[in-house]
């Protein structure tokens, strides 16, 4: 028993010193941020976008402006939920998320401040908030990814609504819990009405559409022949193709003619109303819209640039050639209704 006690004490001590050393030398760990006043020139960012992806951008911002960033990474919607629980007391200055729905929800709660023109004007009206509270920083198009070993371009449907046909039975994958998918269903409701959207969900389900947890898993399922096509965002395929080479079997199909299946959604940001550093916070968004950063999104994440004249990633049509469905992204915040519909249709 003594030996045991000693070994326990030793391992506890080791754990503590190891862990304390780990935080001690952590020069990035934040002091109580946000509340210390604006002289500190430190911004707190809640980022729903992956660290691996956007940390280089944030570092660039710190070097160029001298403003220090303290970034909390998490799931877009969970961070939005966190801000809603924090309310007025939120330590966050900027929220940076990967879908318009989360931004819309914060806006609806009155938690976002109006942005200055410099952070709004570079972006077309269709990719930012109608009441100037958030702005898209990069675009992601909904596509039908397909297995080019099994399907020819001529086989592909003109509308996402055609995927309920018998020729697609058991061959389609989707990610019904994914925020981008749900934003698309919200758009479908706006364009075609709730009844059509619900019927489509039911028919897809009855047609054996296979549910996956993530877009990336849908893509992989196409690559390994589990399914023939799937509804995902365009960049998942470009990303895999860039590392797998030209013979990567998964290709992209953009539904033509303003079909809702080709909706372009945005990743973007807003400034918290409770932030005491409105100007500095907004300058981060302006920074993300500058050419250099827009090019970063194209090169690193294969997303569409939304500001300036940076070209779209190679191999996909320009953003203005994808005819957009008649829907305002700001209206895509009714995800509650969409979830209800998805539940009602029995898909989830």
């Amino acid at each position: 028993m003594k030996r045991l006690t000693r070994s326990l004490a030793l391992s506890a001590a080791a754990a503590l010193s190891f862990g304390l050393a780990a935080c001690g030398d952590d020069d990035e760990s934040s002091p109580a941020s946000g509340t210390t006043g604006s002289e500190a020139a430190e911004l707190t960012v809640y980022s729903g976008r992956d660290e691996e992806l956007v940390a280089p951008l944030f570092e660039r911002f710190e070097t160029e402006t001298g403003t220090k960033l303290s970034v909390r990474y998490g799931d877009t919607a969970e961070l939005a939920a966190t801000i809603r629980e924090e309310g007025e007391n939120s330590p966050a200055d900027v929220f940076f998320g990967q879908d318009a729905g989360a931004l819309g929800a914060l806006d609806k709660d009155g938690l976002l401040a109006k942005l200055p023109a410099a952070a709004l004007d570079p972006v077309a009206q269709e990719f930012r908030s109608a009441n100037d509270t958030w702005v898209g920083t990069s675009g992601r198009a909904r596509v039908l990814a397909y297995d080019s070993r099994e399907l020819k371009e001529a086989d592909l449907p003109a509308s996402v609504l055609d995927l309920t046909g018998p020729e697609w039975k058991g061959k389609i994958g989707w990610a019904p819990t994914n925020a981008s998918f749900q934003a698309f269903v919200t758009a479908l409701r706006k364009v075609e009405g709730d009844d059509v959207a619900e019927q489509w969900l039911k028919d897809m389900d009855a047609n054996g559409a296979k549910a996956y947890e993530k877009n990336g898993l849908v893509r992989d399922a196409i690559a390994n022949g589990e399914i023939q096509a799937g509804l995902i965002n365009h960049y998942y395929v470009l990303d895999a193709a860039s590392s797998e080479g030209d013979d990567y079997p998964v290709k992209l199909h953009f539904f033509p003619g303003g079909d809702t299946g080709a909706l372009v959604n945005v990743a973007g940001g807003g400034v918290l109303k409770s932030s005491e550093q409105q100007e500095a916070a907004a300058s981060l968004l302006t920074f993300l819209l500058a050419d250099e950063q827009q090019k970063f999104f194209v090169d690193e994440t294969f997303e569409y640039p939304l500001a300036g004249d940076t070209a779209a990633p190679a191999g996909i049509p320009a953003i203005d050639s994808i005819e957009q469905p008649d829907v305002d992204l700001a209206d895509l915040d009714d995800l509650a209704g969409t979830l209800e519909l998805i539940e009602k249709s029995g898909v989830l």
């Binding site: 919607a77 969970e78 939920a81 509650a336 989830l348």
Partner: peptide, 25 residues
């Protein structure tokens, strides 16, 4: 359960936060 695609109660709770921003629900 979410990786194994079993529709559980917890999954719906997460969905309520994640997709519909419905904290009361």
């Amino acid at each position: 359960v979410s990786i194994l695609r079993f529709d559980s109660f917890t999954r719906v709770i997460y969905q309520s936060y994640r997709a519909s921003f419905d904290r009361s629900g």
